[in-house]
Amino acid sequence: MEQLQWLGVIRHGQSTGNVIAQDAETGGLEAIDIPERDADVPLSGTGRDQAGAVGSWVGELKPDERPQVAIVSPYLRARQTAELALAGTGIPAVVDERLRDRELGVLDLLTGRGVQARLPAEFARRARLGKFYYRPPGGESWADVLLRLRALLRELRDDHPGGRVLLFGHEATVLLVRYLAESLDEAELMAVAHATAVANCSISTWRREGELMRPELFNSVAHLHREGAPHTRQEDVNAEPV
């Protein structure tokens, strides 16, 4: 069966929650005070500028290099990013809940300091199991997220043989799509995660060569610099505290 020819993934632009979460972490707070539920957190003004810069990048692609379809996380910040980036391109966008961010359960809206202070047993269990397999009560492990991403990519392969697909998701989406596209193991994924600060509205792409997906870009922010959009790297609202 024919595989995807090209796959891209874009992390959403800076959100208002990113700003609040970053301030809470740097301020030494235990909790992150965000009024909206995670699914409803919007882009900040900076995030909207970043999404516009992605739109310029898409517009510069040759017609035969453009994505044929975009698949978008249902979370507002990702949908807004896709809407701004794809405006006027004619590229259809489909929302798929399997691209939602990782669910953190009892760790949601806690900083790293907060997890250690309020849930010391979970802090210790996470340290013992590691990020890949640790599942917080009521939440998901990275392995759980991979199950839904595998199912999504399998459907995309079947529905768009030889096609070009662009995903709009979250920080974990970028890292875990790389894990799948490049057939990494746990240790290789963790090495990438520890070394990589996934930027808001960064672009990562892979192109098929024979049986393999070869990386073209990873966590690229050249388009942001070119368009004068701020380059930011902040944790997703419910990204796992470190």
Score class of each variant (00 low, 15 high):
91 I>A: 09
92 P>W: 00
93 A>L: 08
96 D>G: 12
96 D>C: 10
97 E>C: 05
100 R>K: 14
100 R>P: 02
102 R>W: 00
103 E>R: 15
104 L>T: 04
104 L>H: 04
106 V>C: 12
107 L>R: 10
109 L>F: 10
118 R>Y: 01
118 R>I: 01
121 A>W: 00
125 R>C: 02
126 R>V: 03
127 A>S: 14
128 R>W: 00
128 R>G: 06
129 L>E: 15
130 G>M: 03
131 K>H: 07
133 Y>F: 08
133 Y>G: 11
133 Y>T: 06
133 Y>P: 05
135 R>L: 06
136 P>N: 01
142 W>C: 09
142 W>K: 12
144 D>K: 11
145 V>E: 09
147 L>C: 13
148 R>W: 03
152 L>C: 10
152 L>P: 07
156 L>C: 10
157 R>F: 00
159 D>Q: 15
160 H>K: 13
161 P>V: 02
161 P>H: 01
162 G>T: 08
163 G>A: 09
164 R>L: 08
168 F>H: 06
170 H>F: 02
171 E>S: 14
173 T>K: 10
174 V>T: 02
176 L>R: 10
179 Y>C: 11
180 L>D: 03
181 A>L: 15
182 E>S: 07
183 S>K: 13
184 L>N: 06
184 L>A: 06
185 D>I: 02
187 A>W: 00
187 A>M: 10
188 E>N: 11
188 E>Q: 15
189 L>C: 05
189 L>Q: 06
191 A>M: 07
